[in-house]
Design a protein around this nucleic acid. Structure first.
Lengths: 223, 223
DNA sequence: GTCTATATGAAGATAGAC
DNA sequence: GTCTATCTTCATATAGAC
């Protein structure tokens, strides 16, 4: 069936998917077009029919991963709840993507090849950390408006960046430097809790200090 | 010209230094032994006389950089002062190394090649973040003892890790993803201040704010 | 130990048949 | 568009003279 009139975009996608696996596993330089060709089950010239060079194929792969990353984060619904709850949801969503094999491999490759592909590195920052920071900043804006948080000392955007870096820092670094040891769900929960707790201690205003899931929704949320 | 009696360790060091420059600039796979040989001004077989393979040479380079990193941090004198001052000194010392061209290149290469050199990646964590976290933890231990800090909620070691990741997070990520734009000293100062401020707001106890010099911390107060 | 010269293999990319 | 076969270049690593 597919032999008669091969749809061009189909083979192109096959090549792209194979290239993604190979590039994310080996990095740009160590990956070879032979590996990609073999993984895709096509011939060498089919690869070059759709992508003029190895660099172009690499760029297409990274762009696709960035889009997937952004989409994944954008699908996160914070939902109703207090600030602690909202930050916890965002932190978990961020860590889920960052600590996934795909997320770790993307970081490795983009950062490792940044001197050779500076534009891709910049786009990584915009599609990843920047997007998440904006989501957190929105959340913090509402919290400030409702009196849940006081960010007058550092500002909303700086606070958002501090938070996501606190969330990402240790888990990502440990995963990057211990490639064979994936952290447990319990460990990830603890990291999340520590970061959220620290941020809340620094910037949350004491409303109902007795704490413990005060079911009072400070922010009347849209649903 | 190096005709008389070439000291073996001299040429070995020449090769190692050249290899360091090449590996840190291009990464492991993109670097070639030709580049190293040319940069060192020696012949191909001289390289292989001292290091059996490209991998072994790479490992020697990374080990050397890790030792330099650790030494640099260990030379940091925290000196007398309150907790805010001590954390600021440690943060600046850490950022100086992390954001230096050598520090950024080391991170790039080690993280990028971690799947192929997992042992080096683990040793990177121990020689870098772990060392700094221990220094911060020592500092925090004193602060707890003197009543300057209350770390009962997350613990001393977790607090230390949170702090260094807050310090490192945004500056390092921006430098890694914007290889052509070095941050200004003012920007670095601001990042440092934001991280220290956030940590202090979360965990410092207000001593002598209203009643002035009530307790006597063993490190001299200074604002 | 160090050099020149080279073996050996594989990389990225292309030509031409179908 | 896709394949088989190939070109050119350059990689790591080694042999043999000095």
């Amino acid at each position: 069936m597919s032999n008669a009139i091969a749809e061009p975009s189909l083979k192109a996608r096959t090549v792209l998917i194979a290239a993604r696996d190979v590039f994310l596993l080996h990095g740009f330089s160590a990956a070879t077009t032979d590996m990609i060709q073999r993984a895709a089950g096509v011939s060498k010239s089919t690869v070059y029919a759709h992508y003029p060079t190895k660099e172009a194929l690499f760029a297409a792969v990274i762009e696709g991963e960035l889009a997937a990353f952004t989409d994944s984060m954008r699908r996160t619904e914070v939902g109703p709840g207090n600030l602690r709850k909202a930050l916890t949801v965002l932190a978990r969503a961020y860590l889920d993507v960052v600590l996934s094999p795909r997320g770790l491999a993307l970081f490795r490759v983009v950062v490792g090849e940044a001197p050779r592909f500076p534009d891709l590195a910049r786009r990584f920052y915009l599609a990843g950390p920047q997007v998440v920071a904006n989501m957190v900043a929105d959340c913090l804006g509402e919290a400030v408006a409702s009196g849940e948080a006081d960010l007058s000392e550092v500002g909303r955007d700086a606070a958002a960046r501090l938070f996501i870096n606190m969330v990402r820092g240790e888990p990502q670094l440990q995963c990057l430097t211990h490639p064979d040891a994936a952290p447990s769900a319990v460990q990830i929960d603890q990291w999340t809790r520590e970061a959220v707790t620290t941020f809340m201690r620094a910037y949350a205003r004491e409303i109902g200090k007795t704490n413990g899931e005060s079911s009072r929704p400070h922010r009347a949320e849209r649903i």
